[in-house]
Amino acid sequence: MSTDSIADQMGPAKRGVGVAGSGRSAGPRKKNTRVRAKAWTYIIFTAPALILLLLINLYPVIYAAYQSLRNGTLIQGGDFVGFANYINTLISGNLTPAFWQAALFTLIFTLVGVFGSWVIGLVLALLLRTRIPAGGVFKVLLLLPWIVPVVVSAFSWNWLVATPQSPFPMLAQALGLGNVLFLANPTLAKITVCVFKVWISFPFMMMMMSSALASVDNNVYEAARVDGAGSWQTFSQITLPLISRSTYISWILMTIFCVNDFPTIFLLTGGGPVGSTTSLVVLAYRTVFENFQVGPGVAIAFMTTIVLIVVSVILYRQIRKASVE
């Protein structure tokens, strides 16, 4: 074989092509073809579900956003007014006092619901890690407030506190506190609703914290005891940082649950007395379905959603920081 023919064959070999067109370069092409075919297969199989989700969720959201820019009712679309519903609700409309009152109560309701249920859930989760008599039965009983339907729980609490003949008002009167009406006094009604929310929410937090604590390696606690760390130091410097990711996730979920909680408030107090326990979601419902003002009611719902998104993003960033650390 001549030197020129050898050089001609070595040229393609240096570029990764086999001698005499051996077809070595066809491998990556076949692989890319298989990847594209697999991707199109996934798209074809998931397209019906995605289209259905878009029709069920996205279209109503877009339509509601359009309705928030009109002054219509449930029957008539009304005229296009732009952002007038948002401005009138926030600043200078008839709903402005009720909106800010509902916003303040929603904030209080959410803070108490999130942190109150988290503290109780964390304490019970730590308690369940110890050996206690009848631990299995105790766990089941602690889950009952979350398992029982909220309609049943609200009815039970109404029976306990709603009328002067209810057990708690009668107990307060027997203790010399006078005629205490828990759902007729605005301040007591707020306290009752917040306590009720903590009552039905702490089992969820307890389960979240129990799962987080189960993932912590016991060797860490043993090393801390060897180093002479006390109970509070172990809890504040080891337990809390190691379960921080699950804690932030539970806060996000519970914030969404509290802000969007319609049945708890509506079934227990209906938003009264004198609107003291009306949250933003209850106000939006009343504005749309009782006052037939669709635009302002949907505007309230959208502003609530925006606030929820902002809070969720802030807490999600904390989750990412905790994951990195």
Score class of each variant (00 low, 15 high):
V307G: 10
A26I: 06
V193P: 11
G178V: 02
F105H: 09
L183Q: 11
S92C: 03
I306S: 02
A37I: 07
L142C: 13
A20L: 15
V310S: 01
A299Y: 06
V140N: 06
R129N: 07
L53H: 02
P97T: 12
Q233D: 14
G77S: 02
L315N: 10
S2V: 05
L126C: 05
G270N: 02
I51E: 01
L242R: 05
A229Q: 08
A184K: 09
A162I: 05
L54V: 05
I91R: 14
V294C: 04
L127W: 11
T96V: 03
P48R: 00
A37N: 02
A189L: 10
V298W: 09
Y248D: 06
A154I: 08
R24E: 15
P28R: 09
F262C: 12
Y42Q: 06
W232T: 09
I300G: 01
S25W: 13
S215L: 08
V310P: 00
L177E: 01
N94I: 00
T255H: 07
V216Y: 00
V137D: 07
N57A: 09
L55R: 05
T304N: 04
F155P: 09
W157Q: 11
S25Y: 12
L74F: 12
G270C: 01
K14R: 15
G78R: 03
Y42E: 06
Y285Q: 09
T305W: 11
E325Y: 15
